[in-house]
Design a protein around this nucleic acid. Structure first.
Lengths: 339, 339
DNA sequence: CTGAAAGCGCTTACAG
DNA sequence: CTGAAAGCGCTTACAG
């Protein structure tokens, strides 16, 4: 509903200046530009194609794009599930590459006809999410969460699922339980580590630093992990591998070394989609429903688009989804081979 | 460059009529509407956001959307590799759901600010591709190919890769070689079947209809396949599984039945991305580079966008990419177990 | 750096 | 069903 003229009226300036501020024209006072950006977002200004409103929702990478990954594919699928019936379209965007020199994020989104954005973020790029939130542009962060009072996020909490997983291993009789983490620290992996610590302590089992193993989040990282475990003494009899590809790579390498799974080592993996069913034995895993995260993310944007004015600046949407723990064939009591 | 006014001039009608034809206004003669659509596409009319040209390229599903699949993810990744440096954006679209009642495809694309489209198609929806081509909209088909003189496609030819695969099995000493195909017929699977027939005949091996097995393209389809193979007599000692998920499911089920791979059965799979490395033993496979298909598809659109006038209607782009055959651990001579 | 006014490209009553 | 003219929303010389 908000037009350039309307925003001009609100701010007591001319439509020409609003237009210039929106389009990053160099001859606009920085202070005016910022007021216009905030007013645009507060009143949910909508870009138009001809005389028609655009209907694009971005799936935007703030850092390195990882379009091909199963997690991202599932997120997009979830978004798309909800979007098309509302007439919205999914646009995939690499923010860093798309950005023009002196542009801010709202201007970038406007230029591309984007009404709201799902932000795919990692620890290194949380700053971009904060900036977008500060500009007031409707956005929600997925795949990472952090505590900024302006940032909306959908977060899949892996703490409780991870507790179940470690408890399962303890119940099976394991006392030497390792955990593998991505070399890059992030909030989700921290949850998984905390769960591991918590359950081991709770059962008065030793919490050894050397059982915290870091490996890159790739198939090869899984191979490295198994070779490092093989060299340990005492050797862990079970490991919680907090990344999907690493778990798959570990299974492959363990078989290569003629280990029986779960006889020689029990493995609990982590799954974003359905990779756990692709390996043999099928992975016991903590599972995150990335598709549901994508659905929730779009639903949140839809709600954000329907509020404007002061509420737009003060309403924060945060939703935590549960992970679930699923027992398959890769775990058993220590030394007990599969059937 | 072509504006509504310019198209009006070309056709000797008013800009008002052109606008109405483009926007599917009911009060336009059907014949006029079609001439406008053709002229728009011939002169590469570009929709605008405000006064700026839109830069969207669609990844459009003509049939059932399969956003989450590894093949589609790799295609999108390939497109995106090439697009962002040209300033284009990737929009994901489910054509059937996006379409308004009396609209044609060009009108749909225009409404969404789309300049050109990569069409993801299966046998059931080739008609849609033909229609889009007939309207003259810049588009290229991927994942399927068929011989319509107006349709552009990028096609990964699996015939020669499949011949190599079957020859490899024959060279290893296999004489009972089965092939598994998707329950739904399509051009790519037909290539793979023809290769199987050709090489067996060439080596004077029996080409048995009962060794042509159809299974749904899922993990469970792979399990069904192995159970059916187990029940056969004489039992094939090798199978060429022409779908990625089926091959992975088959490995899993074979291990479940305590078969040694490749000792009890050699498996050649088919891979779109890097699923072949996720299983143990790693799959010997015919590999299609879906990412390269995506890259080529965008490059083709880029070329299409740069030609207009009569050429736009008569130039057809068709490109065939090669598959390559890669030997990994899932094949060996009959009866010879892995190390 | 800003505004009043002209301009752009497209759309839409209005008249036929 | 079509066109001439007015209108819409935004942008852009022009003047200060």
């Amino acid at each position: 509903m908000a037009s350039v003229r309307e925003i001009a009226r609100q701010l007591g300036i001319s439509a020409a200046t609003v237009s210039r501020a929106m389009n990053n024209h160099p001859l606009v006072a920085e202070e005016v530009r910022q007021r216009v950006i905030l007013a645009m977002n507060r009143s949910r200004y909508v870009p138009t194609v001809g005389r028609r409103e655009t209907m694009n929702i971005a799936f935007a990478y703030t850092g390195e794009a990882s379009i091909g990954s199963p997690f991202d594919a599932a997120l997009m699928q979830g978004m798309s599930d909800r979007m098309e019936q509302c007439g919205f379209d999914l646009m995939v965007l690499d923010l860093r590459r798309a950005m023009l020199p002196r542009e801010n994020y709202t201007q970038l989104f406007l230029r591309k006809g984007i009404r709201a954005a799902v932000l795919r973020t990692t620890a290194a790029t949380t700053g971009i999410c904060r900036e977008i939130a500060a500009e007031g542009f409707p956005a929600v962060v997925v795949g990472y969460h952090f505590d900024d009072p302006e940032v909306n996020y959908i977060y899949s909490n892996s703490y409780s699922g991870s507790c179940e997983a470690i408890t399962h291993l303890v119940d099976l009789g394991h006392t030497h339980i390792a955990i593998s983490l991505h070399v890059v620290e992030d909030s989700d992996h921290t949850d998984r580590l905390n769960a591991w610590r918590h359950v081991l302590k709770q059962h008065k089992l030793p919490v050894l630093d050397k059982f915290i193993i870091r490996a890159p989040a790739t198939l090869d990282g899984g191979a490295q992990l198994i070779r490092r475990i093989a060299a340990m003494s005492p050797r862990p009899t079970a490991v919680y591998i907090t990344d999907p590809l690493v778990a798959v790579g570990a299974i492959s390498e363990a078989r290569q070394m003629n280990w029986n799974i779960p006889g020689d080592i029990s493995i609990v993996g982590f799954d974003d989609s359905d990779i756990r069913f692709m390996v043999y034995p099928k992975l016991t895993a903590v599972c995150q429903d990335a598709r549901a995260v994508g659905q929730e993310a779009f639903d949140t944007l839809n709600r954000l688009l329907n509020i404007s004015g002061e509420d737009a600046k003060t309403t924060v949407f945060r939703r935590t989804l549960a992970t679930h723990f699923e027992v398959n064939g890769s775990t058993a009591s220590p030394g007990k081979a599969s059937l």
